[in-house]
Nucleic acid binder design. Structure first.
Length: 189
DNA sequence: AGCACGATCTGA
DNA sequence: CAGATCGTGCTA
């Protein structure tokens, strides 16, 4: 019930990525409310991170990452998918956390309709969860602290023992040190 | 102005 | 394992 405030996002990206595990992602579409518990995240750490979109400076696409923390950075890729990121760190430091998977909690039927799938197939991938939650480019730049369309809430505390860190997915083009950095976080099953 | 390619998913 | 499918950013 407690919505996460700006201070939650305004700190070290790796800490935010870890702390997001177990939190509830809530999406309101009209009268429907969809939610899920975050179980997988990836940290993208600013201009020095060669896997981060902000690596080569500010552009129209990644501008949101350079703004205030606690906003949604949604972008389109592969010609057909949207991916959801949450902006972290202080304003001007372009960092974000990619939400890769959630465990559906509420509005599951809505998600099934959107995805035309059921069960685990619903939200176990960054593009799938965007489809299930109806997240597209119109939510790019959305403030996550006003509780209107998209926000986060406290839910469960995940013990450190249940958190695994691995290298990130789909960033083969990045420098070795960034390709291998253990900046992907998952809840052990 | 043109072009190569991507923080993915699906279905054969 | 290839195809879908298009915006973005780099090169010229």
């Amino acid at each position: 019930m407690t919505m996460l405030n700006r201070n939650f996002y305004a700190r070290d990206t790796l800490q935010v990525a870890r702390a997001l595990l177990g939190k509830k992602l809530v999406r309101r579409i009209g009268s429907a409310e969809l939610s899920g518990m975050i179980v997988e995240t990836e940290a993208y750490c600013g201009e020095s991170d060669s896997a981060c979109h902000a690596h080569r400076g500010k552009t129209p696409r990644n501008a949101v990452m350079f703004g205030q923390p606690g906003h949604a950075y949604v972008y389109f890729t592969y010609g057909l998918h949207y991916l959801l990121n949450l902006v972290a760190e202080e304003e001007g430091n372009p960092c974000a956390v990619l939400i890769r998977a959630v465990l559906p909690l509420a509005g599951i039927e809505e998600m099934e309709v959107r995805r035309k799938k059921k069960g685990a197939e619903l939200t176990n991938g960054p593009a799938k969860l965007c489809q299930a939650f109806g997240i597209d480019k119109s939510l790019n730049g959305c403030d996550l602290t006003c509780g209107k369309e998209l926000w986060l809430e406290d839910h469960k505390t995940i013990p450190a023992k249940l958190i695994t860190a691995t290298s990130r997915i789909g960033i083969d083009y990045a420098k070795k040190e960034h390709r291998e950095a253990p900046w992907r976080f998952l809840v052990k099953i």
